[in-house]
Amino acid sequence: MTQMQNFTKGFFKENAVFVMLLGMCPTLAVTNSAINGLGMGLATTFVLVMSNLVISLIKNVVPGKVRIPTFIVVIASFVTVVDLVMAGYAPALHEQLGIFIPLIVVNCVVLGRAEAFASKNSVVSSIVDGLGMGLGFAMALTMLGAVREIFGNLSVFGFKFMEGDGILVFILSPGAFIVLGFLIALVNKFTKKA
C-alpha cells in the first residue's frame, strides 16, 4: 500500500464514521452545527496524529499485556494538553468546543487506530494514517453537522439563509441518528457494488 492510499483510505474506503461506525459518541453528540463538527474533527485529527506518532515510536518497548492502558494514558495526556493550550491561547475556539474536548479521550477512533495501525506500522505510515483518518472523520462530522444545521436551524456554518426556526428534531439527538443513517445509506450507494 502506498502512502497515498494509506492517506486516502480514511476518507472513503475505511471512513471512521460512515464505514467503520467508530467514534459514535462525539459524532452524534456534537454535530448539531457544521462548525462544531469541523472543530471537533480537527481537534480529534491533532490528537490522532500525535498519539499515532508517539505510539508507533514506543510500540516495541511496551509489553503486549499493558499496551491498552499505555495507549490510553498517552491519548489522555495529549487531550489534556490540547484542552489547556486552547483555553489559554484560543479562548474563542475553546468557548465553542471546550465541553467536547475531553470527549476525544473516549473516542474509539483514536484508540482504534493506535491499536490497529500505529502499534504495527512505521512512524511515517502512522502519521499519514492518523492524518487521513482524522481528516476523514472531520469531513464526516462536518457533513453531518451541515445537514443537521440546514434542516434544524436554516443556516450553514452559522450563516442564516432563511428566516425561521427550522425543524427542531434535527438539532436534537434523534436527528443525529436519522441523518447519520441516511448519510451512510448514501455513501454505501456510491461506494458499494450491489
Binding site: 516495541n60 509489553p63 499485556k65
Partner: peptide, 15 residues
C-alpha cells in the same frame, strides 16, 4: 526489534 515480553517487572516499569 521484537515486542518486549509481558513479565511483571516489564509491565510495572513501562506503566
Amino acid at each position: 526489534m521484537a515486542q518486549k515480553e509481558s513479565t511483571f517487572t516489564n509491565m510495572l516499569l513501562t506503566l
